[in-house]
Simulated assay, not measured.
Amino acid sequence: MAGAQPGVHALQLKRVSVTESLRTGDKFIKWDDDCTTVTPVTLRVDPRGYFLYWTDQNKVINLICSSAGKSLSFSESSEAKQRELLDVGTLEGRLENRTLTVVSGADMVNITCLNFTAFNEEVAKEWAEELFSLALNLLAQNMSRESCLEKVYTRLTLQLTAEGGIPVKNIFRLFSADRRRVENSLEVCGLPTGRVRKCFILLKLDPF
């Protein structure tokens, strides 16, 4: 066929890019399908696009991998129930157009759904488009070894103590399958191993 170029694929690989608005964050209302309470949170994405994380009014940070799936659907019964719960009936715009449902899990069966309701449709639309782009980025799904290490480092530094330290329990949680090796590595470096309650590592790390 004329003009054909063997080995050339039409798919273009693009580097992960996180917009300023996602890095700065926006106000949302977080709620679960099976709960009766709602929580005001600030939703953000780290500059590298590894994690979607949120901070509640108690400054507690929770996060999930940004490669989770996204949905923007609502049933009429859920909409009515949640309108009453969220007390947003007087706001303009449909509830389903302002709500992001983030689905995450190790497989397609064992999943967790988190719902975030924005205060206007424009914010919800921007977050839906940007998060969907991050989730489908092929470079993010096929990271190099260095990027994997950077992702681990990012996870640890997103959940610091009030003193700016890294809780040792978070390190063990990341490497739960090899606790003994983690303890030995910490001991070799002269760092606490988590045997003391509320132990944390106060370091200025700059591996990259």
Score class of each variant (00 low, 15 high):
V123K: 11
K30M: 14
E79W: 05
V18Q: 13
D87Y: 04
G105A: 09
S77W: 03
K81L: 12
E76P: 07
D34I: 10
E96I: 02
T19Q: 03
A68K: 02
S21H: 10
E84C: 07
R83Y: 06
V45Q: 00
L100I: 12
S71T: 13
T39F: 13
T55I: 15
R48Q: 07
F51E: 01
R44K: 15
K30Q: 14
P40F: 11
D107Q: 03
F116Y: 04
Q82F: 06
Y50H: 10
L95G: 06
I64Y: 06
K27D: 15
S71K: 09
K70G: 15
F119G: 03
T19H: 01
Q57P: 01
G49T: 02
G25Q: 13
E76Q: 10
G69S: 14
E121Q: 05
V41H: 00
S77H: 06
S104G: 04
L86K: 06
V45H: 00
T37Y: 12
F51Q: 01
G93I: 07
A80I: 12
T39M: 14
T42K: 07
G105Q: 08
L100K: 05
V109Y: 10
K81S: 12
N110Q: 14
F28T: 08
T24D: 11
S104D: 02
S66R: 00
M108N: 14
I111P: 04
R48F: 02
K30W: 09
G49D: 01
G93L: 06
F74P: 07
L43Y: 09
G89H: 10
A68H: 06
L86P: 03
Y53V: 05
R44A: 08
T37S: 14
L52D: 00
A80P: 02
K27E: 15
A106G: 11
S71H: 08
A80R: 12
V123F: 08
F119Q: 10
E20G: 01
S75P: 06
L114V: 09
D33L: 14
T42M: 03
A80W: 03
K70I: 15
D32M: 09
K70R: 14
I61D: 00
T24G: 07
T39R: 15
